[in-house]
Amino acid sequence: MTISIRSVEKTFGRYPALNSVSLEIADGELLALLGPSGSGKTTLLRVIAGLEFPDNGQVLYGDQDMTYAGAAERRVGFVFQQYALFRHMTVAKNVAFGLDVRKGAAKPSKSEITQRVDELLRLVELGELGKRYPAQLSGGQRQRVALARALAVNPSVLLLDEPFGALDATVRKSLRKELRRIHDATGVTTIFVTHDQEEALELADRVAILNQGVIEQVGTPQEIHDNPVGAFVAGFVGESNRLEGEVKAGRFRIGDLQFDASGAVDGPAVAYVRPHELVLSQGGGEGTFGLVANHIAPQGAVARIDGTTAGGLRLEAAFARQAVADLRPGARLDLSVGRAYVFPA
C-alpha cells in the first residue's frame, strides 16, 4: 500500500510536533523515520496509524483519504515501543486478538484463526511458545510476539515505534536482520521509528530525517550519508568533524586549515568533514596541514586517530590500518581535506 502524507501539521498545546510534513512511502518499501528525541517522528508514526489525528493536512492510503479514519479502518499493524502485549492473555491469544475482534462475515473461523496464529508464530520463530504468558518471555521474544500480533491482520502497513530500543545490543542486531527477513517475506509496506542512525542506515530502503517537526531529508541510506542537504543531517548522520569558520572566494578557512568550498556563498560557515575524508597528502601543496596524533585506536580494518593541528584544532581521522601501521602517538601526519559539507552558519 502506498502511503502519502501531505502537509500534515500537529500541535500539542503550544508546541508544534509536526510542521507541514509531506512524505510518500512506496508500496512494499521499508522506510525509517530517524531523528533525535522530540523531533516528531513518533507523532508522525501515530498520525499514520490513526492513533493521533493531525490538525491540518492529509494522510492517504493508496488514493483513499484516511486522515480521520479510525485505526481499525486503516488495517495497520502497530508494534509499540514497550510492546504493549496483553499481559493476561497467552501468546497465542495475543496474536489472535486482531482476528478475534472482527465481527460478522469478516471474522475468520476458529480453525482459521488457530492456523494463522501457528503460521505467524513459526514466521517469528516462536512456534512452541503459544501457551506462555508475556511475563514468561524474554525481551526479544516479546518483541517477536508483538511483531506476529501486528502481522496477524494482514496489515496494509506495518508500523514500528523504536522496535529495538528496549533490547540489548546482541538481540537488537539479530532482530534487525529478522525484521528485514520478515519484511522481505511478507512484502508489507513498513515504517519504523528510530533514533539510532546505524539501525536506520543498515535496515531501511529509504530514510527520512526529522528535526523539530520538519523533514530535513529523505533518501536512500547512501544519499543521506554521502549527500546531506543541510547542516543538521550532516551533523546527525555519520561521524564528522564540525568546523566553524568562514568562506571566502570558494574556500573554507579556519585557523591554519583551508579547503575547497566551491559553490558556497561568502561569509560565516559551518563545515562537516568525515574522519575518512581527511586524506594523507604527500604533495605539501595548498590545503595541506599537519596533524599530531594523540591517540590511535584500531577498529577492524580502520585505525582511528585523534589528533591536534598546529593551530590547536582537534580532529578525528580514520585510515586503512596498513596505511598508518607504523604510526605512533606523537607522530605528525600531513593531511588534506578530501571532501567537506559546507553550509552557511
Partner: peptide, 8 residues
C-alpha cells in the same frame, strides 16, 4: 492503544 489499533 494496541487493542484499538487492531480494530477493537
Amino acid at each position: 492503544e494496541a487493542a484499538v489499533s487492531m480494530g477493537a
